[in-house]
């Protein structure tokens, strides 16, 4: 790999991405276009997040890469390996606490991030307006004028059809009372974590060539009606009891749902593997293997 520059990208490319990142931080929620580089992996595999990470990481930085909350999924491992390979001298970790930079797909860690940390989210579709307006030119106008009425109409239509807002991921969120962003495919559960976050949140869309940011201590408010407030997933069973993680027993984390292929029962488990392990350790017990309930 010696023929490659540190961080795979050449210094000009990094510089451009950093400039766009600064602009994104300066205009919270604004989608800054950038010249997304070809990466040695298909677009849609997190190249937007990867380019952000590669342009920001330095020797001695500690990196954590997660995919759907897990450090051990194929995607997370491949990305981490690639960054380790092209950035000699960096450290990697699975611990949220120890990481300087967290690159993530689909989740924000359960544990509150700190001021000195930064999280990079991989984004497939950066523009929340794409579901209501196919023309990018018109979408830009709508962003410019703060006209998000059609997104609110979408919420209205959800409410009349299903009596609740059905958007589960990519919940449109207004940053600093200005631009509305698509906060990448994080679940509703993670949206409040962006509000007044101590850590800088950067979002990168490789295929769509956009970078945007939620700067630290910035308002991030999910779109909602005055009388129909935003709410997160409640993870309650039919009797209204909060489900617990079948591994660690936590009742305060985002749960993934599996079907146990041996007995066909539904199993709930923490999506954030680091959180789950730490929760187990804190209670100094082994992760229990029994499923709790279906």
């Amino acid at each position: 790999m010696s023929q490659y520059n540190f961080g795979f990208l050449d210094e000009f490319a990094k510089k451009e991405i950093r400039r766009c990142t600064i602009k994104a931080v300066a205009i919270p929620g604004y989608q800054v276009p950038y010249s997304s580089r070809e990466m040695p992996m298909g677009r849609g595999f997190g190249t937007g997040g990867l380019q952000l990470t590669l342009s920001l990481i330095g020797e001695n930085d500690t990196l954590k890469v997660i995919d759907q909350g897990s450090d051990d999924s194929v995607n997370a491992i491949n990305l981490r390996d690639f960054i380790e390979m092209t950035c000699p001298g960096i450290n990697t970790t699975t611990s949220t606490d120890k990481a300087d930079i967290i690159q993530s797909r689909h989740r924000i860690p359960e544990k509150e991030l700190k001021e000195e940390q930064l999280i990079v989210l991989q984004v497939p579709y950066p523009d929340p307006l794409v579901i209501v307006e196919p023309s990018e030119e018109k979408r830009k106008q709508m962003h410019g004028e703060g006209d998000y009425s059609r997104l609110l109409v979408k919420l209205y239509e959800d409410l009349i059809k299903y009596k609740e807002i059905t958007i589960s991921h990519r919940y449109p969120t207004r940053i600093n009372d200005g631009y509305v962003i698509d906060p990448s495919p994080i679940p509703r559960w993670d949206v409040p974590k962006m509000h007044q976050s101590k850590a800088l949140i950067l979002l990168g869309a490789g295929r769509e060539k956009k970078i945007y940011a939620v700067p630290p201590y910035t308002d991030a408010k999910p779109l909602a009606f005055d009388d129909v407030p935003f709410r997160v997933e409640d993870f309650c069973d039919k009797r209204g009891k909060r489900r617990a993680c079948s591994k660690c027993g936590s009742v305060s984390s985002f749960l993934d749902e599996f079907v146990d292929s041996t007995n066909g029962k539904t199993v709930y488990q923490c999506s954030d593997s680091d959180y789950c392990a730490e929760y187990c350790a804190a209670q100094s017990k082994q992760p229990f293997e029994e499923s709790i309930d279906g």
Binding site: D147, S149, L152, Y156, F225, D226, D227
Partner: peptide, 14 residues
């Protein structure tokens, strides 16, 4: 609703 929402009315019931 779309036209009302453009006029910054944001109360679903209203």
């Amino acid at each position: 609703a779309e036209r009302l929402l453009m006029s910054s009315i944001s109360h679903f019931g209203a």
